[in-house]
Write a protein that binds this DNA or RNA. Structure first.
Lengths: 95, 95
DNA sequence: CATTTCTATAACTTTTAAGTATAATATAAG
DNA sequence: CTTATATTATACTTAAAAGTTATAGAAATG
């Protein structure tokens, strides 16, 4: 049984009890990357279905990826980025 | 039965018969990213075992990733990059 | 409204990455 | 050398993403 009550706590507070700082940082980063992908897709007016045609990645997978219910494989992410004229690069962590 | 004999063909020639241009491009990109990661790890004198401690990602996973026998999840790749002071960014495809 | 397009989700199968334990190989010490 | 020890690679199991199909619910279009 949990010894800390959840009542009255914000998600930020709860998150700190459940996950390590590394997990939180990593998760935010992943969310940021996916968010940038969504933005690029929408800016170019490309639907998930259309992107399925362009990338070969099925629409339900794109949906799950965007909703954050799966952490895509590097390969899958590169596949959906390519038709948007984007790719991934390794960069130094910014301060 | 295959109607093209493999005898006398280079890997580059064979590759074109087996994979689509998109698959080839994506694969080379993934290999390039992994190569850059390996370079960063070795330059910093960090062993796979040490990186396991720093990142929480098990050494066999790092090994398979570097050997190219798996395409890591985005999350896993971010985890191993972080202790090396690196992360991923979405960038335009270069000409 | 009705219809089409788009996104989300569910259920299920297949494929593949992650986790675990161990083995092979390389490197360093005696 | 050969024996330790560190480092990387390999089987094998488990977990999770991808693929498939179908459908429901939003949101735009006529």
């Amino acid at each position: 049984m949990m010894n800390n009550s959840a009542v009255g706590k914000s998600w930020d507070e709860l998150e700190k009890e459940i996950f390590t700082p590394e997990e939180i940082a990593e998760s935010r980063l992943r969310v940021a990357l996916i968010g940038e992908f969504i933005k690029a897709r929408e800016e170019q007016g490309i639907s998930q279905k259309k992107l399925e045609e362009l990338s070969g990645v099925k629409q339900p997978i794109i949906s799950r990826m965007e909703k954050g219910s799966t952490s895509p494989q590097l390969e899958t992410f590169l596949k959906v980025l390519a038709p948007l004229g984007k790719t991934l690069a390794i960069v130094p962590i910014e301060k």
